[in-house]
Design a protein around this nucleic acid. Structure first.
Lengths: 332, 332
DNA sequence: CCAGCGCATGTTTACGTAAACATTCCGTGT
DNA sequence: ACACGGAATGTTTACGTAAACATGCGCTGG
């Protein structure tokens, strides 16, 4: 910076002003400074900048393995949205979802160059960890509940599940089976609860819940069992991958979709339109979730009161995407 | 830090030594300092640290949309591997793959808190951009070629494609059709070249190349055309998504897989095992690619000579995963 | 015609850390 | 007993930036 100032024949402070786009610099001077910067290949040193300003212009994102499509899409939206606000995003991968690992991530985060944190994670592992967060670092949680203790942005899991079940009921099915996600997932829990609730509200008897683990393979295994039940004509799978496995199992057992069995998924992954048959599913707007996470955390940073901010949950609506995996039940 | 020093009754320099795990501190003193740190909730300020040390312990990753499974898995491996080396990862998303966007990403990167850069991207957009990189920032490119100008880590695209084609030839097919990825992708180009080369070597006539864009939808569209050709008994799809679309098209047109047509994919996405039928495909080891990117860039940082380092390409081998989408051709 | 004001620019300083150098203190060998 | 060496710790300083404050200059209005 001193070199630039020397070359441009100004003081380093003026260089600083130009570099930050501050007013109070003549157009003429600005041009000279910019020219000097270019000539010397000057780059502001972000460490010094952060030290001086007391902020990093960086958001930390804590997440488990990026193996689920939802997390990835959310992450991508976060990165894009953060960039638009002039923030960078640094990734804090947590290899294994254990309390120890999460604690580790949070304590590493303590010495990390980050102004705020977005957590894409089930909440229960978070509870014991947050205490070690440096004061003043705001947190927003995606994909969880617990709006009373954290600021949460999430897909409207319940609404989506309700739409899926209603759609199948409207087609004339007596009841709807549910291929659920793993027990320790709040998203899975809420989809399952909404499924049960919607059925009960409609006066139907919820069949026993079938448990999967999000993977296509688990959908396939569950599907093999479901395929043998003649009274199963409609299945709501908690995600598209399991729906894919389910489709395969039904096909292998000679049960046609949608003629014999209707299937609805959840997520609307890009491939869902190319399943056999193309899958009717609940579309999640991950981009919106990511965007809201960023805006939420930035606004918390700006308005952080002395007594902390109040929390709450923001729900992002879903959308039922009709394709070809659902139909009225076969005539009896 | 000064507060900690005061409380522990030592100088700030001793605190620094403890905080960095340096030798030359009595066990007794160390304990006192650690206690003081805990009591005051001290966190080293990473901005000051970076300013003083001249390094950020952070790697930048530039990538297009995280929409392809390969990029994501590579990114995840990079993040994990970087964490193991004590490095954080910051994400530089490039929304649209245009020259302008890439240039923008690189210039933002100039003022970013990053010691080195890993680029997950096709090389041709990179050429004009790199010039603006701050000196001393090392670059490693994943998923591309151009080992003469950059240090590249990539899957052995050609080897994988060769294995796929040979497998089909070994089953007795006369020739193998190829459903290629988009023209501007080097990966697609290299898979296509290896496909053609392997056929020619074996004395077969390569059928016209069918062009897709990686999406399942494009695989479906191409598949509809392929399905009508009775002389097409074996297809090598350049990725699993297109293979999925292809499977759907063949099924719709009544051509059985693998009885009438054999299909081999590329990538081995987790869902491939649940396709109808389970897809024989080429497994890519993205985790290894990511790991090698990190190690490569770190080693370049350590051994950066005055005249720059020499480049080169590291290839990560693939593996043919046999499932149920391939069989000998139907008897004529 | 000059006081006074506002704008463009310069000077000083502090941000938190760690390298380099300085000091202290203790034990050992002669 | 004393000089010496080495280990533990302290002191000084610089890293690059930007806020706060200071300066100088031209222009306006009474």
């Amino acid at each position: 910076m001193a070199d630039v100032a020397r070359l441009a024949g100004v003081s380093s402070q003026t260089v600083s002003r130009v570099s930050n786009g501050f007013p109070g610099v003549t157009e003429e001077t600005r041009r000279q400074v910019l020219a000097a910067m270019r000539e010397l290949g000057y780059r502001p040193n972000s460490a010094a900048r952060a030290l001086r300003r007391g902020e990093f212009r960086t958001l930390g994102v804590i997440t488990f393995s990026l193996s689920t499509m939802g997390n990835i899409r959310t992450l991508e939206a976060i990165a894009t949205s953060a960039a638009q606000h002039g923030y960078a995003v640094t990734l804090l991968p947590v290899a294994v979802p254990t309390q120890d690992e999460v604690n580790g991530a949070f304590s590493r985060l303590g010495e990390l160059a980050v102004d705020a944190v977005i957590v894409i994670m089930e909440i229960h592992l978070l509870d014991a960890a947050t205490v070690s967060l440096p004061p003043g670092v705001q947190v927003v949680v995606a994909d969880s509940d617990a709006g009373d203790r954290y600021t949460v942005v999430d897909t409207d899991q319940a609404g989506g599940a309700r739409d899926a079940v209603r759609h199948l009921l409207d087609l004339g099915h007596d009841t709807v089976w549910h291929l659920a996600g793993p027990e320790d997932s709040f998203a899975a829990q809420r989809r399952a609860n909404a499924w049960r609730g919607t059925l009960t509200e409609a006066g139907r008897v919820p069949p026993p819940l079938v448990r999967g683990d999000w993977s296509a393979e688990s959908g396939y295994r569950s599907g093999l069992r479901l395929a043998d039940r003649r009274d199963c004509t409609a299945v709501f799978a908690a995600n598209d991958q399991m729906a894919l496995g389910l489709l395969r199992a039904l096909h292998e057992r000679g049960r046609r979709v949608p003629d014999d069995v209707s299937v609805v998924g959840f997520d609307d992954i890009p491939e869902a339109a190319s399943f056999l048959p193309p899958l009717t599913t609940i579309h999640q707007d991950f981009a919106e979730v990511g965007r809201l996470c960023v805006e939420g955390v930035l606004s918390k940073m700006r308005h952080a009161g002395p007594h902390g901010t109040e929390h709450g949950t923001t729900l992002v609506p879903t959308r039922l995407v009709l394709r070809h995996s659902t139909a009225p039940p076969p005539a009896r």
